[in-house]
């Protein structure tokens, strides 16, 4: 094999994959398990091929992919001033599109698809729930209005979500933290 083929392609950032499994005997944070960190295109695929597809996870489980050093929780210093673009998948989308949307989201992140806005990206979370799966891209600074909107538009375009039918909302983590019961946090931005 030529040495050229042995050189892996470095990513701009190191990324950590996390797995959350809801075990009521344990604290929320203990249920978040760090799986692996990678920083090349080849290692991304090696990990992706090694794990269960999102659609095959049990209800109550999450996968998260965050830049190395950022924990997949609101309280992390890199997250606490930010929020998330959230997609509540319809039943039909959960059945047909979950795995392709999740892979597309991962490719957007590791490939730095959001141009100069990529620095504001913290990570992504896919949540498997009986009521409907959720997919989110987390960003770090709520004040970065233009950047958040550009990320939202680009993300929606990459997933191929129809513009008029599907409205995607951006929620501040600070709002989500103080919400009681099942009321969703108010959208700060929509695309």
């Amino acid at each position: 094999i030529s040495p050229e083929l042995l050189i892996k392609h470095p990513l701009q950032n190191s990324w950590t994959l996390w797995f959350y499994k809801n075990d009521k005997q344990k604290q929320w944070e203990e249920n978040q398990r760090e799986i692996s960190t990678f920083d090349t295109v080849e290692d991304f695929w090696a990990l992706y091929n090694h794990i269960e597809a999102a659609s095959r996870l049990q209800s109550g489980c999450d996968y998260s992919l965050f830049k190395a050093g950022i924990k997949p929780m609101w309280e992390d210093t890199k997250n606490k001033s930010g929020g998330r673009w959230l997609i509540n998948l319809t039943r039909q989308q959960c059945i047909n599109d979950l795995d392709s949307y999740w892979l597309e989201t991962l490719l957007c992140l590791v490939g730095e698809a959001f141009d100069e806005q990529s620095d504001d990206i913290c990570g992504t979370v896919v949540q498997i729930r009986t009521k409907g799966d959720k997919l989110a891209v987390w960003t770090g600074d709520l004040r970065n209005n233009d950047g958040i909107l550009k990320i939202g538009m680009k993300y929606k375009e990459r997933l191929g979500l129809p513009n008029k039918v599907c409205v995607m909302g951006y929620q501040a983590h600070a709002d989500s933290m103080v919400i009681c019961g099942s009321m969703p946090a108010q959208n700060r931005f929509t695309v």
């Binding site: 701009q12 080849e42 730095e112």
Partner: peptide, 20 residues
């Protein structure tokens, strides 16, 4: 510069893990 990769570039490195 930033190491940004478009979709088609990333996808070409997708491979199936060998059976061990």
């Amino acid at each position: 510069g930033k190491k940004a990769y478009d979709r088609s570039f990333l996808v070409q490195f997708q491979w199936e893990p060998p059976c061990v």
